[in-house]
Simulated scan of single mutants.
Amino acid sequence: MSGEHADPAQRGPGLDEDTVEAVGKVSEALEFVERARGHLYSFHQLMGHADLLLGDACDALEEAGHADAADRLRTDMLGRNVINGRWTFQLVEEFDDGYWSRFREHERRVRDDLQNGERHVFEAHMKEKRRTKGRPGHEAHPD
């Protein structure tokens, strides 16, 4: 369905340009939240990898005869919470179960209520305005 009704006459009754633009802004906001979520997952993976590297570093320090330094790092930093009471996987889970899931539900409801559930109507309309009809590489839809 997504983007099939780029022509304003095909978008259904009552779907005016202001509504299309407003719904597009809601979807764009969600796209930025999706990007932030990706960065949160990157943070999660980077911190996890850092902890594994620190474990290796502690082993290397101990093998090099620096057991005190290795022990200090192991007991204070290895496996330490990154935020009060939480490892990064818990941050990811809370974000996914809370803000991200809720925002996705709201964005979908706005689309369902105002655009018959269609996604990217704003972009589809922009594509229709900007493409050169009849020119190769400017088709409205895939074959």
Rank of each mutant, 00 (worst) to 15 (best):
Q115M: 10
I83H: 12
A60I: 06
F43T: 07
D97S: 15
R37V: 02
Q90C: 08
D96H: 03
A29G: 14
F103G: 03
H125R: 10
V23C: 02
V23Y: 01
H141K: 08
R74E: 12
K133R: 09
H106P: 03
I83V: 11
L15Q: 11
D97L: 06
H49T: 15
V92T: 12
T88S: 15
R131L: 00
V92E: 13
A22P: 01
F95K: 04
R35I: 09
L40N: 02
D113I: 01
D113K: 03
P142Y: 10
L78S: 00
E21T: 06
L30T: 05
A9P: 08
H106I: 09
D76M: 09
G3T: 11
G98F: 03
K133Q: 10
E63Y: 04
N116R: 15
E94N: 06
S101I: 10
E17L: 05
Q115S: 11
V33N: 00
L52W: 08
A67Q: 12
P13V: 12
E105C: 15
R104Y: 04
A70W: 06
H138A: 11
K25Q: 12
H5E: 08
G98N: 06
Q10W: 10
E62K: 00
D59K: 13
E94V: 06
L61H: 02
D76R: 14
L53C: 13
G134H: 03
E62M: 02
G48A: 05
A22S: 09
A60W: 07
M77R: 13
D143W: 13
G38I: 03
E93L: 11
A69E: 09
N116T: 09
R108M: 08
R11W: 14
G14F: 00
L40F: 02
A29L: 14
V110I: 07
G65V: 05
K25V: 09
E118K: 03
T132F: 01
E4K: 01
L91S: 04
Y41H: 13
D96V: 03
K133Y: 11
A70T: 00
D59L: 15
P8N: 10
R131Y: 11
E21W: 10
G134N: 01
Q45P: 05
G55H: 01
E21A: 09
D16C: 08
L53N: 08
K25M: 14
R72M: 14
G55P: 05
R135P: 04
E94P: 07
N81P: 03
H39F: 09
D143T: 15
S42G: 12
V92G: 02
R104M: 05
G98L: 01
G55E: 00
E4A: 14
Y99P: 08
D51W: 00
S101C: 08
H125P: 01
A9W: 12
R37G: 13
V26E: 03
R111A: 03
A50E: 07
E128C: 15
A36S: 06
T75I: 07
A50C: 07
G3A: 11
L54K: 05
F89K: 15
Q115E: 10
E34R: 11
E105L: 08
R102D: 07
S42I: 13
R108F: 00
F103D: 15
H49E: 15
E28G: 07
C58F: 00
F122K: 10
N81R: 10
G24M: 02
K25E: 12
A36P: 02
E34H: 11
L15P: 01
G137D: 01
R72C: 09
G85W: 04
D113V: 01
V33I: 15
R72P: 14
R130S: 12
C58L: 06
V121Q: 01
A70Q: 02
L73K: 04
